[in-house]
Amino acid sequence: MEELRELYQQIILEHYRNPRNFGELSEATHRAEGNNPLCGDRLTVELRVLGDRIEDIRFRGSGCAISQASASVMTTLVKGVTVEEAEALFERFHRIVLGETEPEALDLLAAFAGVREFPSRVKCATLAWHTLRAALHNVAEVVTTE
């Protein structure tokens, strides 16, 4: 139960129940889709990038608590940051879920540190971030982390 609580931290459950920035984005400049068909996790990420800044971001989709919460948390973190900063967040998120770095206490991403104990769930946590990166790089193919 302890490890389950680590995995499904309150922040994750809260974002899962009340996803932020959920829906369609008008005047999106970038867009990508993620799909993990084995699990049935699907996401669409839309961005409006002006200059080198992510002005706005929305996502929609369906899937497990980890994949949906990860997408929701991601949108709150990258909204308003530069593309370069978003890439850095991508890297840090991966180091955290893979257990390569210890997150700092107040870091929202710290909520995902518990995922490292559940190897089969890493792909759920990372789907949104890979979809974001695909959107930024104008990748047309559907992204998967399975």
């Binding site: 389950l4 084995l38 699990c39 049935g40 608590a65 980890i66």
Partner: peptide, 26 residues
């Protein structure tokens, strides 16, 4: 609305092995 994947992980920690997913029958 609980996703099968979350159910599977939860049950696993109870020692219960079930299958979650599309079971190769999309």
């Amino acid at each position: 609305d609980i996703h099968p994947h979350d159910i599977g992980t939860f049950l696993d920690r109870e020692g219960i092995a079930i299958r979650v997913g599309h079971h190769c029958t999309q």
